[in-house]
Amino acid sequence: MSELAAVQGIERIEDAPLEGLLEAVRAYRDRRARFITATCLDRGERFEILYLFDEGLKTVAVRTFLPKGQRLPSITGVYLCGFLVENELQDLFGIEVDGLDIDYRGKFLVTNTFETPPLLKQTTCELRPTKEEPS
């Protein structure tokens, strides 16, 4: 189970436990950092999720680990613009996000077509047996 040691181009990575995630993100909000995006990596038993922020052209990150099967708290209450990337996490990694402001329920980019979420490791992107045309 590996994790990122350091990323060239990211000034610092601050680790936050899952329950402390929103506080850590809110601290950046209070400092008026601009939310860039979130990035998720599939690390076997868990997901490694980085929330990237811009502070005066420098990139900083908050990192959290999410065991597979657990639900991720949504940051849309703090940064509304996070809704796009959180919907993407639902679609492509199969992570369920709690309290998402605008929720496409896994039909944001792909329509429930794959047996396993496509961006997980060791998936061959098998199609689900189709019953009917998806609406």
């Binding site: 350091a6 990323v7 060239q8 990211i10 860039i36």
Partner: peptide
């Protein structure tokens, strides 16, 4: 190793993040 690059595209800031694992394939391209 991992790296992040930010450049200015015509529409705004464009970000690539690559995570390598020592093989010819990347672990993740964001």
């Amino acid at each position: 190793g991992a790296a992040l690059a930010r450049v200015e595209a015509p529409r705004g800031e464009l970000i690539y993040m690559v995570v390598g694992n020592g093989t010819k394939n990347l672990e993740r391209m964001r």
